[in-house]
C-alpha cells in the first residue's frame, strides 16, 4: 500500500475537523447547559420536551386559574360574611325588642331593617375591577335594585328588591379536561327555603309596624343563617379542594421539570471530562502533524 503525503494530510485534516466539531458541540453544551441544541440532535426527545414544556406551561396556567377562582371564592366569603353580620345584628335587635311595646324602639327597628336591606343590597352589588360579582354572567348590570314607593309624607318606602342579573355561571379550566363552574348568582344568595330574604325582611318590617307577632321571623332568619352557613362551608371545602389541587399540580410541575431536566440538561462533570478528552485528542493530532512534517526522507538527506 502506497501512503502518500495527501493521504496523511487528508486523514489528519479529517481528524482535525471531526475533533474541532466535537469541541464545538461540547463547548456549546457546556455554555448552554443543554444536551440538545437542535431537534436533529434527538428528534424523539425534542418531541417529548415540547410535550413536557407545553404541559408545564399549561399547568402553570391552571394554577393561575385556580388561584383566581379561590380569590373569587374568598371575595364571595367576605360578602356573605358581611350579610351574615347584618342579619345577625337585626336578629339580635328583634329578639331584644320582642318584649318591648315601645313605639320608639319599634320605629328604630324599622329603620334598622331598612338600613339592613340597603346594606345587603350594597354588599350584593359589589364589583371586582371590571364587573358586578353577583350578577351571574351579566357583569355590567348592577344585580340588585331597591324598589321604593313615595309615601304621603314624601318619604321613600322600600317595597321590594329586584334581581337584575342572570342565573348563568362561568366555567374555567382547572385542568385539561376539567372545568370549575363557579361563582354565585344573586338569586342563590338571597333565595332559600323560606323565600327571598329581602321579602322576609320587608314582611318583618311590615309586621313590626302593624304590631304583629314577629317571633316567627326568628326561625326564618335562623334558617337563612343555615343557608349562608352552607354556602360558606361549601366555599371553604371548595377552597380546600382547590388548594389541594394546586399542591398536586405543583408536584406535577416539579415532576415535569425534572423530566425535562433529565432529557435536556447536561451532566457537567461528565461533559467536562468529555471536553478535556477531546482537547487532548486535538493536541495529539497537532503533535502527530508536527512529527509528520519532520519525519520524511528529505529531512534525513
Amino acid at each position: 500500500m502506497r501512503i502518500t503525503e495527501s493521504i496523511l494530510t487528508r486523514s489528519f485534516l479529517n481528524s482535525l475537523n471531526n475533533t474541532m466539531r466535537d469541541l464545538y458541540i461540547s463547548s456549546n453544551k457546556l455554555s448552554s447547559g443543554k444536551k440538545l441544541q437542535t431537534p436533529s440532535d434527538s428528534p424523539s426527545e425534542t418531541q417529548i420536551i415540547c410535550d413536557y414544556k407545553l404541559n408545564e406551561k399549561s399547568l402553570n396556567q391552571f394554577i393561575k386559574n385556580i388561584e383566581y377562582i379561590i380569590s373569587r371564592y374568598e371575595l364571595y366569603d367576605s360578602c356573605i360574611d358581611s350579610i351574615y353580620n347584618e342579619i345577625a345584628n337585626i336578629k339580635e335587635k328583634i329578639s331584644r325588642s320582642g318584649a318591648s311595646n315601645s313605639s320608639e324602639i319599634k320605629n328604630n327597628l324599622v329603620e334598622e331593617i331598612n338600613l339592613t336591606i340597603k346594606n345587603i343590597v350594597f354588599t350584593l352589588n359589589r364589583r371586582d375591577s371590571t364587573s358586578y360579582i353577583f350578577s351571574g354572567t351579566d357583569g355590567l348590570k348592577k344585580p340588585f335594585e331597591i324598589v321604593t314607593e313615595t309615601q304621603s309624607d314624601g318619604s321613600q318606602k322600600i317595597v321590594s328588591v329586584e334581581y337584575k342579573g342572570n342565573n348563568l355561571k362561568n366555567k374555567i379550566h382547572i385542568s385539561d379536561n376539567e372545568y370549575e363552574i363557579f361563582g354565585f348568582t344573586g338569586n342563590e344568595i338571597v333565595n332559600y327555603n323560606y323565600g327571598n330574604i329581602f321579602d322576609i325582611l320587608i314582611n318583618l318590617r311590615e309586621d313590626l309596624m302593624r304590631g304583629y307577632d314577629i317571633s316567627v321571623y326568628q326561625d326564618k332568619l335562623n334558617e337563612y343563617f343555615n343557608h349562608l352557613n352552607k354556602i360558606i362551608v361549601n366555599n371553604g371545602s371548595r377552597i380546600n379542594n382547590l388548594n389541594l389541587k394546586i399542591e398536586l399540580i405543583k408536584k406535577e410541575i416539579l415532576n415535569t421539570q425534572s423530566s425535562i431536566s433529565d432529557i435536556e440538561d447536561i451532566d457537567y462533570s461528565q461533559e467536562i471530562v468529555k471536553y478535556t478528552s477531546i482537547k487532548n485528542r486535538y493536541e495529539i493530532i497537532m503533535r502527530l502533524i508536527e512529527n509528520m512534517q519532520n519525519n520524511n526522507i528529505s529531512n534525513y538527506l
Binding site: 500500500m1 502506497r2 502518500t4 503525503e5 493521504i7 487528508r10 479529517n14 528529505s298
Partner: peptide
C-alpha cells in the same frame, strides 16, 4: 469520499519519500 480519494492517492498520488528514493 475520503476513503476513495485515499485509494486514488494510493495509486495516482505522489509520495515524496518514494520519489526521493
Amino acid at each position: 469520499k475520503n476513503s476513495n480519494l485515499s485509494k486514488r492517492d494510493m495509486i495516482s498520488g505522489v509520495s515524496i519519500d518514494e520519489e526521493m528514493l
